[in-house]
Nucleic acid binder design. Structure first.
Length: 557
DNA sequence: GCCGTTTTCGGCCCGACTGTTTTCAGTCG
């Protein structure tokens, strides 16, 4: 008898999500609901097949978020296709909820709220209102994002999250598939901040066998299309996986085709002719053949890079090693996890010359913003600490809220005592573009304004930023001697590459900062560096590639 | 339900403000 097809990780994860959804509808303990969602996420990210793990009697509690109870639930799902608990819950709920449970990623509380407000009661109506933009308009961007994410099959993830996925797939290809060479390409290699598809170039003498193996990745990966040398899958996480086979003697040309954006390839071919089948084993050889200097993957977007490469004016892109200090970091004084001293020592260990401590200002209560008195104390404390510590200079600073009228959240007498400031918007995101822009321009008129923090306030895949007229803000910064940051938080990366490029064009320097809330987060600098490179920034455009004495001069207004 | 240099119970931020809301959920870091 033919063995029944094993249940995929995606299906197991969906069942766990359904449980979370129905428990949530029953007003169960929210932490319990969260636990099921967390376990679902863990299952989705596995490269091994959960069904096989169960069959092999593996200990599932080894995986984070899976304990004794959920491990038992997963076993039951693998063995019977469902769980008694889920079926019992399904029998109890309202018709709206029952219909909703076909979309396990929907949060019932939020959807019922939408139903009530828009006076609808079906998924079809929900989809319709999503498409018409009514959900975004009447319930906000976060709600819109949530529904969109839950109703569509295709997903995107932050570049930062894709790191783990890429490493797992690469490991799988090398360990389980008959390939002799693997290289990641596409938007991941270009370091695009949101990834919807990961793609690999492989060298193999048996591509069909590779496809067959990949269909078993994560238990089961849906094969969307396949040809002689290329195949497209949908992984459990909803991300697309593209794999292309190429021979070593054409590896370089294939790498270029697979990595560059369509625009890049078009401009490249306009400059030098057909790339494919050039029989070039390295990328450098292709560019050389076309009379171009090497183009870094981060720049292959079809902007001005081909022209720059032809003229030999390609910028030397900034690298992590060029960074000499941190300019945006929090401590336990506000909402950070580590003390000022711990942060300073961690920065020193990273090889930095200085670390600016930028705790939140007084009006940001939720983040433990410092009162004026607290900041005065902190200034004196840092002076003492600097006398005691060697090999690192702690800069006195603050992440100062830009209030709704464009004033700063501390009086000038206090701001004057700081080495510099990072000024940010944390409230009233809903102001119109003109008002929001004026607010920032007014703030920049304060002579103690140094760096604009996360200029648009966007949170990738969660909410769009507030609207600003980037051109006007950049021009005002140039006139007033103000600067920008590229905030390295993986879900901010704000300035965007586009805005950073515009700032560079205006000659306004940019700090690459981490906004670290703990010592470990200093390492996020690599995410900001990726973004800076995508913007074509060399170290000359970067503020904190400079020593503190040099910076201090730049900060004088 | 998970987790543990605060290990087997008790956390799992949190708190002020906003809105077109009609009394509380969502939002900022």
């Amino acid at each position: 008898m033919e063995e029944k097809a094993a249940i995929s990780n995606a299906d197991v994860a969906d069942k766990l999500m359904s449980l979370a959804q129905l428990l949530s509808a029953q007003k169960e303990n929210p932490f319990k609901v969260k636990a099921y969602r967390r376990a679902a996420k863990t299952v989705k990210a596995l490269s091994e097949s959960v069904a096989e793990l169960v069959r092999d009697d593996a200990d599932l509690t080894e995986y984070s978020g899976i304990g004794k109870a959920i491990s038992g639930t997963i076993r039951e799902i693998v063995q019977s296709g469902t769980t008694g608990q889920l079926e019992a819950l399904r029998a109890q709920v309202s018709p709206e909820m029952a219909a909703m449970s076909a979309y396990p990623r929907l949060d019932p509380a939020r959807v019922l709220r939408i139903y009530k407000k828009l006076k609808i009661s079906s998924i079809a109506a929900l989809e319709e209102r999503l498409a018409s933009g009514e959900i975004a308009q009447r319930l906000g961007a976060r709600m819109d994002q949530h529904v969109r994410e839950a109703l569509t099959e295709r997903h995107e993830m932050l570049l930062y999250e894709a790191d783990n996925l890429v490493a797992a797939v690469e490991g799988f290809l090398l360990a389980k598939c008959p390939v002799t060479r693997v290289e990641v390409t596409g938007e991941y290699r270009r370091r695009v901040e949101i990834v919807g598809e990961i793609s690999f170039l492989v060298e193999t003498d048996d591509f069909p066998a590779v496809v067959l193996k990949l269909e078993r990745y994560g238990g089961k990966s849906e094969l969307l299309s396949s040809g002689e040398n290329s195949a497209l899958f949908r992984l459990a996480s909803g991300i697309l996986l593209k794999v292309e086979a190429e021979a070593g003697n054409n590896w370089g040309a294939a790498l270029i085709v697979s990595t560059g954006s369509d625009n890049h390839i078009r401009k490249l071919e306009a400059a030098g002719g057909q790339v494919e089948n050039l029989a070039a084993s390295t990328e450098a050889a292709v560019y050389r053949k076309f009379g171009l200097s090497f183009i870094e993957p981060e720049l292959r977007e079809g902007d001005d890079e081909v022209e720059l490469a032809r003229r030999g004016e390609m910028p030397a892109l900034v690298m992590a090693k060029d960074i000499r200090g941190e300019l945006h970091a929090h401590s336990t004084s506000s909402d950070g996890a580590n003390t000022i001293e711990q942060m300073a020592l961690a920065a020193r260990k990273k090889g930095y010359e200085y670390a600016g401590i930028t705790d939140h200002s007084q009006s940001l209560k939720i983040a433990g913003g410092l009162s004026e008195q607290d900041l005065w104390k902190q200034i004196r404390y840092i002076d003492k600490l600097n006398e005691r510590l060697s090999g690192i200079r702690i800069l006195k600073s603050a992440e100062v809220d830009i209030l709704v009228d464009g004033s700063l959240d501390y009086p000038d007498e206090l701001l004057r005592e700081l080495d510099y400031t990072v000024c940010s918007i944390h409230s009233k995101f809903s102001l119109g573009k003109a008002e929001q822009t004026e607010r920032i321009l007014r703030a920049m008129d304060n002579r103690y304004f140094t760096i604009l923090g996360h200029a648009t306030g966007r949170l990738l895949l969660k909410r769009p930023g507030y609207e600003i007229d980037a051109g006007r803000v950049i021009e005002h910064a140039r006139k007033n001697g103000c600067f920008f940051e590229i905030n390295s938080s993986p879900d901010r990366l704000d300035l965007s590459a586009e805005n950073a490029r515009m700032a560079r064009g205006a000659g306004v320097k940019i700090a690459v900062t981490t906004d670290a809330h703990s010592m470990g987060e200093f390492d996020l600098i690599r995410c900001g560096i990726d973004q800076a490179r995508r913007a074509g920034l060399s170290k000359e455009s970067i503020l904190n590639s400079r020593s503190w004495p040099q910076l201090r001069q730049l900060f004088q207004r």
